[in-house]
């Protein structure tokens, strides 16, 4: 079983993407999808020297639900800022210290930050210990950092082994 599915989650994603691409759940397509889901990871397993380990994969679902809700809110906030008066905005750069040790976790956090209200990630320091953010309207720097750490970084620390 371990040799047939070196990356079970990756195989599952491949199978779902194949079914979505064909837009059908017919038995033939499902079988062909299983064939692809078994063979593709066998060929690409060498590209992943240190694979991310998900300790609690089911937590990802609740994280995604929170993220989708926040994206909707973020859009309303940014829409108001875009249509409102320009001169009242206070744009600026913020440095966010990172406590994540895993590359995949950093990628997920960076994407999350870019999709949520008024923040875009701009640069990652070479030692992977801090992230540079651009904020559209800075109100309270410390509060924003605490918010990001509490809402996004802590669940990610639980999901990935950190």
């Amino acid at each position: 079983m371990k040799r047939l599915f070196p990356q079970p989650l990756f195989s599952l994603c491949l199978w779902l993407i194949w079914l979505l691409l064909n837009n059908s759940a017919a038995p033939g397509q499902a079988l062909l999808g299983i064939l692809l889901a078994v063979t593709i990871p066998l060929f690409t397993v060498r590209f992943w020297p240190n694979r991310p380990r998900l300790r609690r994969p089911w937590r990802l679902a609740s994280y995604l639900a929170v993220l989708l809700w926040d994206i909707t809110i973020a859009n309303l906030v940014v829409a108001r800022l875009i249509l409102g008066p320009m001169h009242r905005l206070r744009p600026g750069f913020i440095t966010l210290p990172l406590d994540l040790c895993n590359d995949s976790a950093i990628v997920v956090l960076t994407n999350t930050i870019s999709l949520t209200p008024g923040t875009v990630s701009a640069d990652l320091s070479i030692d992977r210990r801090s992230l540079l953010l651009h904020v559209l309207d800075v109100d309270d720097e410390a509060q924003l950092i605490a918010h990001i750490k509490y809402r996004y970084e802590r669940p990610l620390q639980e999901i990935f082994e950190c």
Partner: peptide
């Protein structure tokens, strides 16, 4: 439309980034 308005209206590049990444995606 709002995302593209933001991109056309903001005075500086780093601010322009905010429009397309959020509003256009939604």
């Amino acid at each position: 439309l709002i995302g593209s308005i933001g991109m056309a209206r903001f005075p500086e590049l780093f601010m322009r980034l905010h429009g397309p990444t959020k509003a256009t995606t939604l």
